[in-house]
Design a protein around this nucleic acid. Structure first.
Lengths: 151, 151
DNA sequence: ACTGAAACGCATTCAGC
DNA sequence: GCTGAATGCGTTTCAGT
C-alpha cells in the first residue's frame, strides 16, 4: 500500500531521482535501511517504473516537437501499429485515443526536414490511413511528475 | 561540448538516473572523479535539466489521461495563459501550438468527474475561448528519453 | 516494518599531470 | 580533462525487535 511515508518518498524521487537514500531518510525521519526496503518494494510492485534524466532537447539537436495524430485501420484492441510507431527513434509517446481510430504521437526531431521523413515513414505503415501534425512553437511545461497529495 | 563520452553518460542517465558515478565510470572507462566533473558541467550548462522518478499513474490514483486543446485570445508572444495552465495540479505538459492560437495540454486526473472539474476551471480563465479534449484509452509508450546517437 | 551496527562501496576533494 | 589516493559518507545486509 502507499502510505504517507511512501507518498513522501515518491514526491522526493519525482523531484530529484538522484536523491540519496540517506537524504530521504533524514527528510522523513526513518533509518536509511527502511528507505531502501521501501524503495525496493515500490520498484518491485511497479509503482516506481524507472528513473529518467531529463536532457535539454536542443542540446541533443532536437529542436522540433510535433504532436501527430495517426489515423489507423486495424482490428479493435490491436496494439501492433502502436508498437510499431513506438519503436521509431524520435517517437517519445504513443497514446491510443477514444473515438477517432487514431494514435496521438509525440515526436521530437531535428528540424522540419526530419519531420517530413518521419511522417513519410509513418505513412508507409500499411494500417496507417493519414496523419495530421501540430508543430509546437513553445513548450511552457513538460514533466512526468504526478501530483501526489500527502496527508 | 557534448563529446562521445558525454553522449554515453546522457544515455546511461536517461535509462536509469540512479546509476552511480562509479558504475558509469566502469561503463565508459574513466575514473569516477572524471564522471562527477562531467555530470556537474552538464547540469550547470542546462544539458541535464533534472532527474525524475517515473511513477505509475494508476498507483497514484490518476487513471485518466487527456490531451486538451485550449484555444486562447491573448497577445502574440504572451506566455501568461500558458503559465496559468501549467500551475494547475494534474496539468503535466503545456505546449503552445502553431497556427491555432491554442495550447496543447496533457492532463492526468482520477476520473471523468475530475476532468470535468478541470475543464470548467480552465474554461473560467478569461483568455480561454474553448477547449477540445481527447481521452486516452491506452498509452503504448511514454518516455522523455531522447535518441542520442553515439559515434 | 523498523532500527542500529558493521562491512563494503561510492562520492568527493585535491594534488599532480 | 583526467588520474589516483584519501577521507567521509552512503549503501546494503543482517540480526534483533
Amino acid at each position: 500500500m502507499i502510505d504517507n511515508a511512501n507518498k513522501k518518498i515518491l514526491n522526493i524521487l519525482q523531484k530529484n531521482a538522484r536523491t540519496t537514500n540517506a537524504d530521504i531518510a533524514r527528510q522523513i525521519g526513518k533509518a536509511p535501511s527502511a528507505i531502501l526496503e521501501r524503495i525496493r518494494k515500490l520498484e518491485a510492485n511497479g509503482v516506481i517504473q524507472g528513473y529518467e534524466a531529463r536532457v535539454a532537447p536542443l542540446a541533443a539537436g532536437l529542436g522540433l516537437t510535433s504532436f501527430t495524430l495517426v489515423s489507423v485501420e486495424e482490428e479493435v484492441g490491436s496494439t501492433s501499429t502502436g508498437e510499431l510507431l513506438a519503436s521509431i527513434p524520435g517517437v517519445l509517446e504513443v497514446h491510443y485515443c477514444a473515438g477517432q481510430d487514431s494514435y496521438l504521437v509525440k515526436i521530437r526531431v531535428q528540424d522540419t526536414e526530419r519531420l517530413a521523413e518521419m511522417l513519410a515513414k509513418i505513412g508507409r505503415i500499411p494500417t496507417v490511413k493519414n496523419t495530421k501534425s501540430t508543430i509546437v512553437l513553445r513548450t511552457v511545461k513538460e514533466s512526468s511528475n504526478l501530483p501526489i497529495d500527502e496527508e
